[in-house]
């Protein structure tokens, strides 16, 4: 039964004569990986990779992934390599029909991201402190976060349902 549905779908797909779509379907990779130096200039490059990888995905989901990755990478760049020679950050994106798996690997100081207290949404400018929002954004933007410190580095794994 499922084969029949697949065949029907494929026939309809080809009958639309969308050669470009078919080409994209066959060639857009389901896995992308890139490594950049652990410096703030790299943040834009990671965002670009995510944008290219998530071309056909809802813009809100794309924004959530860019935001979570940006905040994690910023923490690594500003704090992870403190008093160390900055090395690099590797971003890996894996796509499957229901979710995007993201992993961020660095070789800086181990840092376990923990969910911060809820943001006080009613505080005025005078009551607000500058800073501390980044990790809150990460936890609000993705569906799961796992962290692992290994002999070869730190791996932060994020999962975003689509």
């Amino acid at each position: 039964m499922s084969d029949y549905v697949l065949l029907t779908d494929a026939t309809q797909f080809i009958s639309t004569n969308s050669a470009t779509l078919l080409y994209n379907q066959l060639t857009v990779p389901s896995l992308q990986q890139i490594t950049h130096p652990a410096k703030l200039e790299s943040l834009a490059l990671f965002r670009e990779l995510i944008q290219d990888f998530c071309q056909d995905i809802n813009v809100e989901v794309l924004y959530d992934i860019q935001l979570a990755v940006d905040e994690i990478c910023t923490n690594i760049i500003l704090h992870g390599y403190k008093d160390m020679e900055p090395a690099s950050i590797t971003l890996k994106l894996e796509f499957d029909p229901a979710e995007i798996k993201i992993s961020i690997t660095d070789t800086g100081h181990p840092f376990q991201p923990k969910q911060p207290p809820d943001i006080n949404l009613h505080a005025t400018a005078e009551e607000r402190e500058i800073g501390g929002l980044g990790l809150s954004f990460v936890f609000m933007s993705v569906d799961d976060l796992q962290y692992e410190s290994t002999a070869s580095g730190n791996i932060t794994r994020l999962l975003k349902k689509i």
């Binding site: 910023t74 500058i130 980044g134």
Partner: peptide, 13 residues
């Protein structure tokens, strides 16, 4: 087009 928490710090400041 994009703003992280760093942008919010700039606004608050």
């Amino acid at each position: 087009e994009f703003m992280s928490s760093a942008g919010l710090r700039a606004i608050l400041a």
